[in-house]
Design a protein around this nucleic acid. Structure first.
Lengths: 149, 149
DNA sequence: ATTTGTGCAAATCGTTTGCATCTGA
DNA sequence: TCAGATGCAAACGATTTGCACAAAT
């Protein structure tokens, strides 16, 4: 909740240095909201969040950001390669701080996304695409349900 | 374009008999629009269509159906097990006349969905789900791009 | 000083729904 | 007859965008 800003309102706290340099390395200006959102995203291990969730979390920490800015920021982070978008069901998008190549569990009833541990590889090989096409990527989503429901 | 209706406006043509019994077997009343849409869907081999596409197709054949009815009908057919919904990207839904268990290619640039031939099996095994959960299903989408783009 | 980001509200897109009107059995 | 379908328009939820204002370099 405390706002670690200097006299000009800038974030000078060491807490944010990691995020700040990450942003700079990606060519993104370290604005207050990008630092705050980046901190929420990248300083708590691997995460899968929706825009709505992140917006709520920010609000809970006393950080003022509009939902539109959360959406825009998630998109920018994704374009900069800091996040990876995961589409598990038709309607909602999740953003994964693990940008590596891996697959997902999706627990529909809880609106929750989990990484499939890399060792438990699912894929033998991508299937040969039809003539004239190449594989751009493979998305695997394992839908889960609570046992006995 | 010709409307094969009897004096009361009913579809009496043999063309529609297959669809008619399919609908009846699923407990769906064979209405004019269900017969027309069913005919478009089920008399041309395996198909993957979006609501928009099917609506356009119907219009092209001189069949009057509202887009809302197309959506409702696709949903009813899906619930009746005549179709399978395929979510390839976040925004659009496709409906697959092949209701068996199989995976999909998705050509983003053409808004097109193809079946992955069953022989080219991708999956070794579903990964073990976390404690307390069971696998409800596995969705695999292989995204394709035209070579050299 | 200039460029780039932000907030808000309005716009968009695919899809669903409410309701008065038709239609099939 | 009359439950069940349809059409339309309005409602929806997630996401994007236009524009005046604010902040970063």
């Amino acid at each position: 909740m405390p706002m670690f800003t200097d006299s000009r309102g800038r974030y000078r706290t060491p807490r944010f240095n990691a995020v700040r340099s990450r942003l700079r390395d990606s060519g993104l200006r370290p604005t207050r909201q990008r630092l705050d959102l980046g901190h929420l995203l990248f300083s708590h291990g691997d995460r899968h969040v929706s825009a709505e969730q992140l917006h709520g979390e920010a609000a809970g920490e006393g950080v003022r950001v509009s939902l539109a800015t959360v959406y825009n920021t998630l998109r920018q982070f994704t374009e900069a390669g800091l996040l990876r978008e995961v589409r598990v069901d038709g309607s909602r998008s999740f953003f994964d701080t693990n940008t590596g190549d891996h697959h997902h569990f999706f627990i529909e009833s809880e609106e929750r996304v989990l990484d499939v541990p890399a060792e438990k590889l699912l894929l033998d090989r991508a299937p040969e695409p039809p003539e004239g096409y190449e594989v751009a990527g493979v998305d695997v989503v394992v839908r889960l349900r609570r046992i006995g429901s």
